[in-house]
Amino acid sequence: MTVRAVKQISIGRNGVGSFILQCKKMDFHYCDWAGSSKGMNGFIKSLLPKFAASHPQVEFSVSPRPSKHPVIIAQYINGREKAICVRNMEPYEVLKKAELLRDANGEKLRKVTKPVQSINESVRGVWSPYHGNGLRV
């Protein structure tokens, strides 16, 4: 006859209380010889030190991948990873791609049609046909 409890787990929402950057690791692969890596090599020499220093929450690794196009691979907290091939790009274009990967949340890309997504219940409530004065047809 007493009230009993149902087990539930609280739901976390990133950005409420604390924000955690979803990108946790970035791998930069380059080739010393190939021409498609020219921009990537310039990026690693000139822009990457500053980029890496300004993002201590991301683990960076730079490694050669001879005879292959240069690529940036980012790993995310949700377990997925995203890779962008940066062949024949200028250093600043590579930086743009690195920032794009940094800002992504790792989810598959999908079209967002609603301006707000929320797990809170509606403040206004659900419309009920049994309340109010009714509608005369």
Binding site: R4, A5, Q8, I9, I11, G12, R13, V16, S18
Partner: peptide, 11 residues
């Protein structure tokens, strides 16, 4: 800061 709807805990 996590969300838990307490009204769903009652049986």
């Amino acid at each position: 800061s996590r969300t838990l709807d307490l009204s769903k805990l009652f049986a």
